[in-house]
Design a protein around this nucleic acid. Sequence first.
DNA 1: GCATAACTGAACTAATCAGTTTATATTTGA
DNA 2: TCAAATATAAACTGATTAGTTCAGTTATGC
Lengths: 208, 208
Amino acid sequence: MNPQVSVLRKGRKLDQVLAGAREIFLRDGFEGASVDDIARAAGVSKATLYSYFSDKRQLFQEVVQAECQRMSTEIVSKIDDTMPIREALSAAAYGLTKFLVSDFSQRIFRICVAERDRFPELGQAYYAAGPGNGHQQLVEHLAASVACGELEIADVDMAAYQFSELCKARNFSLACFGVKTEFGESEIQDVAEAAVDMFMKSYAPKQA
Amino acid sequence: MNPQVSVLRKGRKLDQVLAGAREIFLRDGFEGASVDDIARAAGVSKATLYSYFSDKRQLFQEVVQAECQRMSTEIVSKIDDTMPIREALSAAAYGLTKFLVSDFSQRIFRICVAERDRFPELGQAYYAAGPGNGHQQLVEHLAASVACGELEIADVDMAAYQFSELCKARNFSLACFGVKTEFGESEIQDVAEAAVDMFMKSYAPKQA
DNA sequence: GCATAACTGAACTAATCAGTTTATATTTGA
DNA sequence: TCAAATATAAACTGATTAGTTCAGTTATGC
């Protein structure tokens, strides 16, 4: 709703603190990050840091919330309504497949998963801003394509889940478990194309 | 290779220690678990614990390795060759969909992801014993079905990845992020059926 | 230029936790 | 039965870290 709702003290170094915290939390996670490290990375004294935030927890939440907002707006800004469905899906599949194995996305994912017990609301907020949001967008596009006869889908909601899940085929698990961390263009394209192929074979009306 | 290769001192309380460690690590993760807690849960003194294991790390590795073996043999034991492909896939899809959102599987997954930096080889071992192993099994089955004309698949490897990924649709992400933790039978069945439907539409030859 | 708010650095507290030590007790097996 | 192996409880070390305090410094607005 309101992007700047936080009631943080204003002050010269607030942005520095947030930037430093973002860097260290993203690198080390919540438990792994030490407040001294954050203060050092931010170029700020610990006392200053604690004048903005009541504790480590609050600082962490503020950082992750900001990241969620960043991502959410970035994802939404990339949607294109004018293409025919296959092209639109190809573009979406490629973007998603690539994003899912990116270092940034993997780090955020790991933090959310790792801190699920300590911050139950964190994963939920991330889900809503990221995957949940994307899912909604996709459902709307699919429904529109069904309405104009481009697609034939009994359960649009499930189809949307399947689509995004297909973009995780092979690469995502490998990345999650650290079996493979770098992916070439073709490894991303292959998965994206296979996802679109499968999706279209299932849900595009056959011209008999 | 060798299931009992570990060179641990033998002694009366070894099994107790492992059981206690399993319980606490599974509950609290590596960093979250305290050795005192483990000793208490095992009904053993800390000194005894440290007479078996040189440090917390080694104890953790031993526990996770044992869990991987347990799971791997359990999964392999459930495979059935005699069914027609659609039924076999339905059975596999249901089993996998259910397993993926189980408390146990989610906990192991979270630990592997959370401790990726501290134990890079942990996620890799788990992947090999679990998802990787399952993938191999599936590839073989699919290849056999292709050979006898039941299926028509250009890229069997990719198809297998797609199949197991489809079983994660909707539920898995929700569980991962803690948005939803309990799933009813029908929520599992729906996903499994949708996975098989999509898979068959893509890869079962049309009887024209 | 000066009062005020913001910031610094460094030392300090209090808690947690991995791993060790020691003196004592229990189990086992021969 | 007795000696060796194994286990115990509890106190201790040493390291790390969140959060506080405070005397002194720097920047800002008026």
